[in-house]
Design a protein around this nucleic acid. Sequence first.
DNA 1: TTGAAAGCGATACCAT
DNA 2: ATGGTATCGCTTTCAA
Lengths: 353, 353
Amino acid sequence: MAKGSREVVTRNDVAQYAGVSTAVVSYVVNDGPRAVSPRTRDRVLEAIRVLGYRPNAAARALKVGSTRTFGLVMPDGGNPLYAELAKAVEKEAATRGYVVLQTNTDSDPAVEKRKISDLLARQVDGLILATPTGEPGATELAELNDSGIPVVALNRPVRGTTSICPEYRAGARLGVEHLIGHGHERIGLVMGIERSAWSPERELGWRDALVAAGLPEGPIARAEFSRQGGYDAGRQLLTTTNPPMPVKQAKVAKLLKATERPTAIFVSSDLQAVGVLRALHEAGLDVPGEMAVVAFDGTAESEFSWPPLSVVRQPLEAVAQKAVSRLLDEVDEPVEAFTYPTELVLRASCGCN
Amino acid sequence: MAKGSREVVTRNDVAQYAGVSTAVVSYVVNDGPRAVSPRTRDRVLEAIRVLGYRPNAAARALKVGSTRTFGLVMPDGGNPLYAELAKAVEKEAATRGYVVLQTNTDSDPAVEKRKISDLLARQVDGLILATPTGEPGATELAELNDSGIPVVALNRPVRGTTSICPEYRAGARLGVEHLIGHGHERIGLVMGIERSAWSPERELGWRDALVAAGLPEGPIARAEFSRQGGYDAGRQLLTTTNPPMPVKQAKVAKLLKATERPTAIFVSSDLQAVGVLRALHEAGLDVPGEMAVVAFDGTAESEFSWPPLSVVRQPLEAVAQKAVSRLLDEVDEPVEAFTYPTELVLRASCGCN
DNA sequence: TTGAAAGCGATACCAT
DNA sequence: ATGGTATCGCTTTCAA
């Protein structure tokens, strides 16, 4: 049995063994489209069992034109946010009998293009784009469009494609408002480095909250969406603004406010927040006592940081569900934008508990 | 162009457009097996470009019997360790023109069985099993064996399958020895709850180091391989052994040693270590001052915990590489066990720096 | 160097 | 209720 493994059982063998035609085998395997008498069905089932028959998905795909497969393109599956997103997508797809091909681009547009092409060649039934780095180029987009397969963009708006996102702006506002509720009046921001043209929604949300409360803008630090990036941003926020400003600069009141060390920071991603926390610890600052922190994302990692992070949690499951159902539904209005509400998860880093 | 997208271009269209036979199109697309004159080749290439032809992978797979796809089965892609493993596998597979179907089992044997079956039906060219929870059952294993496709088990030995693992035992020993080098004499252990029958190698490695140094065994706490599990284990290690032992128990010297609070802990996974750190922080213990910690795994998360974790890093890339090449090489000796050395990464939690 | 044609395994229509 | 068979798109042998 260990080496006699080469025997590939086809639907022909089954038909022969059961003494029926291949059509009948097909009918019982697929429960249709024609009815089969219980007795023959049992014979076929038995044959399948005995021979260990397993339908060849490639053949089926060729015939029916569907692979029951989705492609998922993301920058880095090692990043917890994408890992969790991917898992949610896989889970949702699995409930519909679909399977997902996950690929990483390492944020390289050339790689992204290649991988998308490959996925298309593999006849995926739908493509999920979760690569925030840049929009696909013109040719790439055209290629996608006339490939005829449904595409959704996750967590970023893409022109000409239906997109599914968390409510970035409202979510960020929620987080900042919570900080304001704790009495903070100088709230800094750690943002990613936006390369694409679309508006940095989380930044807008932060500003929304500040403006609504009549508060000045705290300092902003921009860095990579990574733990290291957050660390750098955290240090930047602390060191460059810590010493009292020279008199001549202090004249400009607004500027002064903007450069004084904040008492709270809103961080636009978990990963960065973890880095910020490290910078804060190294500086010997008490969190949340001397510096409160709220982050966006809410991956599992945020729950066990020290102190545990208060976060604005992304609706990953909702987004994944929508992505899959959208891909399946073959809706004809091609472009639409869906957003899902975030959830404020209060832990220790903001000052609660 | 947006809606006239239905035209599926086949190799027939290309042949017609280029005024050649379909065979020739195949020759140029695959660079063989026959040579094509430069002029015809150019015509074909042009036709492909103009028509936007993309070879149908399903048809190719049916014909040649290879999908250029691997299946990866793991308990939870949301777990950073598996996320990083999966990424490494995807990366390695991509360099060989392969793509990988990732599926999660949530540690449910029934789900695992279903997903493996599905992957097999999809004609994957190889299967990577990274589900440490339990060994596949007898029927499952038989199914795998006579499916005729190569299988490798990652990070766990599986009977009847070639396995690729880190050097768990030697690695754990390395980590504990480092702690001993720092002068610790009472070193506790946080382990996972082993459900399978094979020996808990990391525990053996911990013991190896202790025995070699003539040190008594510290306390052991067993818990789930999760952050929460680590937290629970950490508390257990602290609270149950903190108060001085009653006199009658103290009589048994060895027992006493085993139950006194350790000064260092070796944790068998990053995730658990993060939980242990939380427990330590909550108890107000200084790390590494009052309690040193070294963990096994070395995911990215460990670098930014507080304090940064000293870890025994798993050779994920090496394991992934070997897995892929093993799947491809079609070696005939079916069962073999490969192990790869771990690497000690020193950060702050052990007392270095 | 190029072309014709036989399948790969499954589906489902059209007969019976 | 069941069977025969054309077909999906591609690869590759064999013949020209």
